[in-house]
Simulated assay, not measured.
Amino acid sequence: MPTASPSSVAESALAPHGEGAAGDRAVQQNLAASWPADLPAADEKELLTAGCGLLRADATGIGRARWPTVFPDSGGSVAPAFSTVRFRIQAAIARRDGSPDKAVVHLVWAGTDRGGTFTDLRITDWHFTRTIKKGATTWTPQPRT
């Protein structure tokens, strides 16, 4: 049976499934190294904050009213798909998405669904466009299609 060479082992920087929060740093480092930064730091920070909030709202149902264009049915009661107790974002990056006025927030996350199944290394992307409101530039999340 062939064995892995030291170089192939070194190339696999992702933490194994089930590593828990201890593996999140490796996931973040791998994600950032795989997709070099291409946005100003202030834009990246704004996008990461919004992207993480959107993911949390989407997965847990909490905070959907903040984004009525993304979650138009958020006025009623929403049964969360994932538990807030066992939900965490393992890694996140924000990058341009084809033009200076478009961006994507790429998130890797873990959570326990309503059936009690925990899964890590889940992937979600949120797309944004740069808009100008009242003279201020902001990033607006796009509804999923």
Rank of each mutant, 00 (worst) to 15 (best):
V85E: 09
P36G: 07
C52M: 07
E46L: 15
L107F: 03
G116A: 01
D101S: 08
D24M: 07
T138D: 05
G76K: 07
L14G: 12
T69H: 15
L121W: 01
K133N: 11
A15V: 10
K133S: 11
D120I: 04
A41W: 00
P16F: 09
G98Q: 11
S99C: 06
Q29I: 12
H127K: 14
G51H: 01
V105W: 03
G135Q: 03
P36M: 05
G51I: 00
D43A: 08
G76V: 04
S12N: 14
E46S: 15
A21R: 09
L14F: 04
A32G: 05
E19P: 06
T138W: 00
I132V: 02
D97W: 10
L54Y: 10
V85M: 06
T84L: 10
S77Y: 10
P16W: 07
T145G: 13
S74L: 03
R114L: 12
Q29Y: 09
V105F: 03
S34H: 02
A50T: 15
T84D: 11
S12D: 10
L47T: 04
G98C: 07
A91W: 02
V85G: 07
R114H: 08
S8H: 12
H127R: 13
L47Y: 04
G18F: 11
D43R: 11
A33V: 11
P36I: 05
V9I: 15
G98N: 10
I62M: 12
G135D: 01
M1C: 10
G116R: 00
H17C: 09
G23R: 08
G63R: 04
E11N: 15
P16R: 03
F118I: 00
A59E: 02
F128K: 09
P80Y: 12
A10I: 13
R64G: 00
T137Y: 07
M1D: 04
G75Y: 08
S77I: 08
L107P: 15
S34E: 07
F82P: 00
Q90E: 13
A37C: 03
A65V: 12
G115P: 01
P6M: 14
H127I: 02
V70P: 00
W109T: 12
A92G: 13
P143H: 08
G20C: 07
I93H: 14
A32P: 02
R95C: 03
P143A: 10
I62E: 14
P36V: 06
R130C: 11
A4W: 14
A4P: 14
T112F: 03
L121E: 00
T112P: 08
R88L: 02
R114C: 06
